[in-house]
Design a protein around this nucleic acid. Structure first.
Length: 292
DNA sequence: CATTTCACCTGGTGGC
DNA sequence: TGCCACCAGGTGAAAT
């Protein structure tokens, strides 16, 4: 399901519910695909960590994990502090762990009570101090979970990149602008829907060579992309709870697509039938009249 | 290096 | 109803 707006919506929902909770234990399925970090490693590392914050980076959901602060009333000094001189500052920042979740095409994060039966294709379950479980479910197994630190994502953020930097990304590139938009090491977070939708709004044919687009057209694309992503985030915000909660998979309240999956239907602006081609291996939808 | 193609999976849909 | 081809919002490895 997930491109930037969906992942943003999910990350916000999980953050609101789980921030401050901590991990008691972790279970992982026996498939190997979903894991970027060996499950036994995660199983060993996760218990005791506190979920400090959950946020989105590109299409990734990042949970910042912190050592559970030890209550001061239990000074361990009596036991061991004498043996090793403690390092002066806890410069933990560099080693701070992050749980990384990529939803692939069909991944879902669910928060449920333990007594709710596990849905089919559940690949990870974190038991939390609050008594709830965070579950990762993914039939197609394109999603990934891993433990990392210092994750910044493969590319630049479409919502915050400047017009100048946006234009620079495509300089000298000979690939189609649509393929460039999908390349996560340039911009991260844009997927097939919002690539098509932003190109439509900017009036640009998906097959145009990225490096040959005028600065003016790139500026228009920059703005169209921001606009459609923000609109989608606003629309998605209303259904976060349905998505994240136990078994409510109501899906997203999506904005109306203007070209995506509208092959043969009339363009909403000029009435010309929307055309579908395959570009960069993906179904690509555009209006042959409005997009030049 | 830049770019393209393809494999990786399961499930839903629509035609026959 | 059953069977089958095709499509799906993702990526990374392999090929070009």
């Amino acid at each position: 399901m997930p491109e930037l707006p969906e992942v943003e919506t999910i990350a916000r929902g999980v953050d609101r519910r789980l921030r401050g909770d901590s991990i008691l234990s972790a279970w992982f399925s026996s498939y190997k695909e979903p894991f970027k970090t060996p499950p036994d490693e995660m199983q060993a590392a996760l218990p005791g960590l506190r979920i400090a914050r959950v946020r989105r980076v590109g299409k990734h959901i990042v949970a910042d994990l912190a050592e559970k602060s030890v209550p001061k009333s239990v000074p361990k000094s009596a036991k061991k502090s004498a043996r090793k001189a403690a390092p002066p500052a806890r410069t933990r920042a560099a080693t701070e762990q992050q749980l990384l979740v990529h939803l692939g095409m069909t991944g879902r994060l669910l928060i449920a009570a333990p007594e709710v039966p596990l849905p089919p294709h559940t690949h990870a379950v974190l038991s939390l101090a609050s008594g709830r479980e965070l579950r990762f479910v993914d039939p197609r197994r394109f999603g990934r979970i891993g433990l990392v630190s210092g994750f910044t994502g493969p590319g630049r953020e479409p919502l915050t990149i400047s017009q100048d930097d946006f234009a620079t990304l495509f300089r000298g590139r000979k690939l189609a602008i649509k393929a460039a938009l999908l390349n996560q090491s340039l911009l991260h977070g844009v997927g097939n829907i919002y690539a098509d939708e932003s190109l439509f709004r900017a009036g640009i044919r998906p097959a145009r060579v990225a490096g040959r687009l005028s600065r003016e057209r790139l500026n228009r694309l920059h703005e169209a992309l921001r606009a459609v992503l923000l609109e989608a985030i606003r629309a998605g915000g209303s259904s976060v709870s349905d998505y994240v909660d136990a078994d409510g998979v109501a899906g997203f309240f999506q904005i109306q697509h203007r070209v995506y999956l509208r092959t043969g239907e009339p363009c909403l602006v000029c009435g010309t039938p929307i055309r579908r081609i395959v570009l960069a291996g993906r179904g690509t939808h555009f209006c042959p009249y409005c997009q030049k």
